[in-house]
Amino acid sequence: MPPQPQPPRKLEDQFVENVSRYPIYFVTVLLGGIWAGLQPFVNLYRKSPMAGTMVTLGSLLLLLFVYFTLRGMTGDTFLPGWILRWGNPSGGLS
């Protein structure tokens, strides 16, 4: 006796199965993008550790420069508020 064919799946089941794949796809794309962005730095560190360190340090300094420039352009203080309140429990400047 041949096996009975299964009835076709409902469209809702197919939709849920398809949508449930998206988080895995998102994580995969995110990790691949991070890896592709870090790969040049990894190759540079392997070739010349000093050059890799200098490029990394320069990149961090550039990001800090842009951060503090944008903070200054918006009228914020040079230092973040939590640093200004650190030694002063009242919250104001000493």
Rank of each mutant, 00 (worst) to 15 (best):
D13F: 00
P80T: 00
G81A: 15
R46I: 06
T28V: 07
N88G: 04
V29E: 06
F26S: 09
N88C: 09
G58D: 05
D76S: 12
K10I: 06
I83A: 02
E12W: 05
L62N: 04
P40D: 00
L38M: 09
G72P: 03
W86R: 08
P7D: 02
S20P: 06
T53K: 11
T77L: 13
R21Q: 10
W86G: 03
Y45Q: 05
D76H: 13
M54K: 11
I34S: 05
G87T: 06
S20E: 07
V55K: 02
G75F: 05
M73C: 15
R71K: 05
P40K: 01
F41E: 13
R85A: 15
G58W: 02
R21V: 04
R85V: 08
F41N: 11
V19Q: 05
V66M: 09
R85L: 01
E12K: 06
K47S: 15
P23L: 03
F26L: 15
V55S: 03
W35L: 15
R71E: 06
L64T: 15
W35V: 09
A36I: 09
A51V: 06
I24G: 10
I24K: 15
Y45H: 09
M50N: 15
N18I: 13
V29D: 08
L57N: 00
W35F: 15
F78I: 06
P49H: 04
P49W: 11
L30E: 00
R21G: 00
K47T: 10
Y45P: 03
L62Q: 04
T77E: 14
D13R: 04
W35D: 08
T56L: 07
L44G: 02
L31G: 08
R21I: 03
A51N: 07
L62R: 06
L30Q: 08
M73R: 15
A51F: 07
L31V: 06
F15A: 14
W82K: 02
P49T: 00
V16F: 09
K10C: 11
T53S: 12
T69C: 13
G75V: 01
F78K: 03
G37K: 00
E17G: 05
F15R: 14
